[in-house]
């Protein structure tokens, strides 16, 4: 009852607008009113803050307010669905992220197909993860940890921020590629998980670098590996996982998308401005403070990243046996 009516309204809106303006004119006058960026998370956290930085940049450059609209819930699916159903006019954008790619296989009955229904606009940043262990875990290197885990199957507790999150799946990927078996202990978000990791209730976790780095620097937790292909600038002494587990890579990423059918001219205009922002030294300095490398792409490159990641994580989800209705 709700769906067809909404769709009808959007169709009507599109039909009324189309004959009046050609899409070129649209792009020239765009943005003519405030633009909403849907962030499918509650406020806070590196991604939300990065989105706010980017919105501020776009507001200044394009002379219209870019407003953050937090629509948390159902592992990003609620916010994503809002954008899927919005009019494809460039006035509703989505903060796209790894969870969108994971959810494509994690959830059985979504009302949308992410790759089909969301048009990629451009990448924004990567969010590398890091494998951290409690100080009392005897293993000092990845190899030692693998031996330790094999000697104690099922007795090592691996924390995560919830079933099917990137933190969980990075751990599952590790188990699958090293043939180890750990007990997965899910939490509601990483905050309480860190408390238990520091206190030794759980032994290992694969959190985002931004949330873990201070514990590593202070020595409260020990970093064994970065989950990226290469070592991280912020932790040069910590090896990349690839050095011990060839082929392993797991890192979250963020970008911007719009509803399918958003005019190419508008996508191009936004992409140019986003990339100009990512190249701006001041913006780069602020991203660096968050501890995240920028991810500057064309719309097509970002689209390919989304497709590749969707395929990659579908395999891990299958391995982990994770499922959500």
């Amino acid at each position: 009852m709700k769906l067809p009516r909404r769709r009808f309204l959007h169709l009507a809106a599109g039909a009324a607008a189309l004959p009046a303006f050609s899409s070129i004119v649209w792009a020239q006058t765009y943005p003519a009113r405030p633009v909403r960026m849907i962030v499918p998370y509650a406020p806070g956290g590196a991604a939300d803050i990065a989105a706010r930085l980017m919105c501020q940049w776009l507001s200044e450059r394009l002379g219209q307010q870019f407003i953050i609209d937090n629509r948390p819930g159902a592992g990003t699916n609620i916010g994503t669905e809002v954008v899927v159903r919005a009019a494809p006019d460039g006035y509703t954008l989505l903060l796209v992220n790894l969870a969108n790619a994971i959810n494509a296989s994690l959830y059985e009955n979504l009302n949308f197909n992410f790759v089909r229904d969301i048009a990629p606009v451009g990448g924004m940043m990567r969010l590398p993860q890091v494998m951290v262990v409690n100080r009392d875990v005897p293993a000092k290197t990845i190899a030692e940890f693998i031996d330790y885990a094999k000697a104690n199957p099922g007795k090592i507790n691996m924390g995560s921020s919830g079933i099917g999150t990137s933190v969980h799946l990075a751990g599952e990927l590790f188990m699958a590629m090293t043939g180890t078996k750990m007990t997965h202990v899910p939490y509601r978000g990483t905050a309480t998980a860190f408390t238990d990791l520091i206190a030794g209730q759980i032994h290992v976790m694969f959190p985002a670098i931004s949330s873990a780095i201070e514990y590593v620097r202070a020595g409260t937790l020990r970093a064994l590996a970065a989950t990226t292909a290469a070592r991280l600038d912020v932790l040069p002494d910590v090896p990349a996982m690839q050095e011990a587990v060839p082929g392993y890579e797991a890192s979250a990423w963020y970008g911007i998308g719009g509803p399918k059918g958003t005019p190419a001219e508008i996508v191009g205009k936004l992409n140019t401005e986003i990339n100009a922002g990512l190249a701006d030294p001041k913006m780069q300095a602020q991203f660096a403070k968050l501890g995240v490398p920028v991810l500057s792409t064309s719309p097509a490159e970002f689209g390919k990243l989304v497709v590749d990641e969707t395929e990659k994580w579908a395999k891990v989800v299958k391995l982990a046996g994770a499922r959500a209705q």
Binding site: G44, I49, R217
Partner: peptide, 13 residues
């Protein structure tokens, strides 16, 4: 988050 953007990681230090 607000501290992080200032380049400060809240923590024991």
């Amino acid at each position: 988050g607000a501290l992080m953007i200032q380049g400060i990681q809240p923590g024991p230090e």
